[in-house]
Structures are given as C-alpha cells and as structure tokens.
C-alpha cells in the first residue's frame, strides 16, 4: 500500500506509537546517564543524586508501557506461535480465526486494565501520592499510572487492528498471510 492510500487514523496511530517508542528510548538513555551520574557524584564529589532508586523503580513502568504497543505492532510480543503457524499453513481460516480471538482477548484485557487503573490515577492525583520520603525526595505517582493507562489504550488499539486483520483473513476478505 502506498502512503497516500493509508487512511489518516491509521497514520495517526502509527505516529503516536512511534512517538511513545521514541520517548521510552530516550528514557532508557536518561536512566543510564542518571545512574552513571549518581555513581560519579557519590564517589568523586561525595554528593549522590537524591531519589535515584525511586526513579529507577518507577522508570521501568514508564518504559515498558510506552513501548509495549510498538513492540506488539512489530510482532515482538511474546507468544508461542509454533502450533498456530502450523494451523495457519494447513487450515488458514481456522488459524486466522484463532489469531483473531487471541488478538481480541488482548484488546479486551488491556481496555479493562486501562478502565480499572483510571480511578486509581484520579485518586493518586487528588491526594498527592508520592514515592520517597518527605523532606528528602518525592516522586509523584499519578504520571506513572497515566502512562499505564495510555500505554494500555495504545496496546488495545494495536490488538484491535490485528484482530480485525485476522478476522478479515478468516472470513476470506483478505488473502491469508504469506500470499500478499
């Protein structure tokens, strides 16, 4: 498909997950720099950076959820697809129907996760929850919950796209995989 044939929402979605992916990538580099700076600060200047353990602990949530949709779209989310590929080869429609169910389940679960975490984020924001110790270092919790929600929603969209594609293949409206 050439670029101008791709519908706008699809291009927008691709752009957003690429952006989230880039943010997470930058975050990994920041994390590396932060820990190295803390090590140098502690040993050379006798002044460690406050709150590094807390930042590291929460960063992994940010990195994983910002990057998970892009990972799924790139086909790198972990699944055991040996049996599935075999079925797709031998009985393409059945295989694609199974794939559609798997992808739709992913969509449903991630939507449910986003929906359940939402009120927790509001609560964390309203009562100013933070990680750390008063007067030493405080890291607000709500932005991380917001990333979990946003990342889950993006992932659910990515699941929906794949579910739809698999369903169309199962229904014979798209050629089966490998025959494009």
């Amino acid at each position: 498909m050439s670029r101008h044939e791709t519908p706008l929402p699809a291009r927008l979605f691709t752009g957003v997950i690429a952006l989230a992916n880039a943010a997470a990538t930058a975050w990994i580099i920041f994390l590396m720099a932060l820990i190295v700076a803390d090590v140098v600060g502690r040993n050379v200047f006798l002044s460690p950076i406050a709150g590094v353990p807390e930042i590291v602990k929460f960063s992994i949530i940010g990195i994983v959820f910002l990057q998970i949709a892009h990972t799924h779209a790139a086909g790198q989310m972990i699944r055991s697809d040996g049996l599935l590929s075999m079925i797709i080869r031998k009985r393409p429609r059945l295989g694609h129907a199974m794939d559609a169910i798997a992808q739709a389940t992913g969509c449903g679960l991630t939507l449910a996760l986003a929906w359940t975490v939402w009120p927790r984020m509001i609560k964390a924001f309203e009562r100013g929850e933070f990680e750390g110790a008063a007067g030493y270092f405080a890291l607000p919790v709500w932005p991380f919950l917001a990333i979990i929600i946003g990342g889950s929603l993006l992932l659910s969209l990515s699941f929906a796209v794949e579910a739809l594609r698999a369903a169309r293949r199962a229904g014979g409206r798209l050629p089966p995989e490998g025959e494009r």
Binding site: I28, I60, I63, V64, I68, H70, T71, M77, I78
Partner: peptide, 11 residues
C-alpha cells in the same frame, strides 16, 4: 533494547 525489555517485562 526497549522492545526486548517491554516484551519480557509484560510477560
């Protein structure tokens, strides 16, 4: 790196 991390941590 991020893709591997995300895939493994999600698991």
């Amino acid at each position: 790196t991020g893709h591997i991390t995300a895939a493994v941590c999600f698991l």
